[in-house]
Amino acid sequence: MSTPLSTHLKRLEAESIHILREVASEFKNPVMLYSIGKDSSVMLHLAMKAFYPAKPPFPLLHVDTTWKFREMIRFRDETAKRLGVDLIVHVNEDGVRRGVSPVASGSNVHTQVMKTEGLRQALDKYGFDAAFGGARRDEEKSRAKERVFSFRSENHAWDPRNQRPELWSLYNTRIRPGESIRVFPLSNWTELDVWQYILAEDIPVVPLYFADVRPVVERDGALIMRDDERLPLNPDETPELRRVRFRTLGCYPLTGAIESDATSLEDIIAEMLASTTSERQGRLIDSDEAGSMEKKKREGYF
């Protein structure tokens, strides 16, 4: 712990801890979706706090698309070891066999097969009845209307027109066998809250969030880091070394870097306050069509 929390961060923290405990109390087999990013880091930190001195009574699940930055995978394994928590890694092997990749199949198919279908496979395989996700309502318009406890049918589908009313901090956790609930403890946090909390609580994050000299190519206005040899270069492309960092982390061929000199958490916060673009702008998968996130979520995307 480094600095005392502001009133508003304390209230957000307490609300999230309440949500985490409520799930542990009322579900038989919960899991925490761990995507290695800053939001997951905060969510995991809150889980460590919620159940202290016990460990969180649920495992972490990472749906690995096999195209994450290598630094993310290293950070994931180190984090699980450092905190002594169970980590399940699931890969959609069927997708791998079919050769699905962001390069060969495009972002839509890759995301659908390796993320959405991979997630469904893992949830079915282990029979999880509740899954925590680090999504925030300020990220995207359709998320703004999603409940903290978001009901999913047996087919993992979300029906935005038929959501349960959610009042006070009284969460309806009742489900039938096969149905499940996605739970978003960070619903009321903003990107700024997340960074200020990481700063105040001294929470480790993947180094890719900090500026460094990295090999990138510019494609359709986005700076793509060539993390390994699998990303083919166009004839006219040569990776150039630029000082960049990432605001969000995903599959490396689908995640745009920004030019930045921010090497500390303080720098990141200052840079964000001056920024004129939203964090999801770096995500190439959201902008395919209007309402694209709502559509993906109805199909079971987190």
């Binding site: 600095t3 005392p4 929390l5 502001s6 009133t7 508003h8 961060l9 209230r11 957000l12 200020q196 303080e266 916060i269 200052a270 306050l273």
Partner: peptide, 13 residues
């Protein structure tokens, strides 16, 4: 940064 930290710690919701 200093002004930021100060403002943040007093902030209410």
């Amino acid at each position: 940064t200093a002004a930021l930290a100060d403002a943040v710690s007093r902030k209410t919701l």
